[in-house]
Amino acid sequence: MAEEKRNSNDRLQEFALKILKATIKGVVFCGIYFLLSMFLAPVLEAVPNALQIIEIFVVVYVFLMIVGELTKGSIFHHFFNAAKALFSILYLALCLNGGIVGTTVQNASLVVDLRLFLVVAMLLGLLGFAKSVLQAINFLNEKTEHMRF
């Protein structure tokens, strides 16, 4: 009975630690976002919906990051990490319209070619996805070995 209670306490403590870690990560990420958005505000104001698009990205990314952190120690942690990487790739590709972003200011049309940035970001996203897949394989491998012994 005492052993069971101790295990339960340990699990609770572990979960609380995960929540704390996830909260810190989320706060740090949001802090960086607010800091950077302050720098970019004069530029982003010229592009319609840019702030909204970035906010949606940050919200979903932070959500996946927190859920991933809470499920640490299970296979779902790697699923959420992989989902986070795939989300980054797809969202960037969709929102940046294939890398060519255009807007109209008064009578002038402005076109920014972000294809190079998009390619690098997508490659890094793929690298993150590959890392998550390798982590999942490694996790299952370790679990199988653990069960065998």
């Binding site: 970019l40 530029v43 690298l127």
Partner: peptide
């Protein structure tokens, strides 16, 4: 395997930081 994963993780993080800092500073300096 773990070392490889860690290496990929560090490299990815560094490249992301470099990319974001460079992109934001380039746009900001415009």
């Amino acid at each position: 395997m773990k070392i490889l994963i860690r290496m990929i993780g560090i490299a990815t993080t560094l490249f992301w930081i470099f990319l974001i800092v460079f992109f934001i500073s380039a746009v900001y300096s415009a």
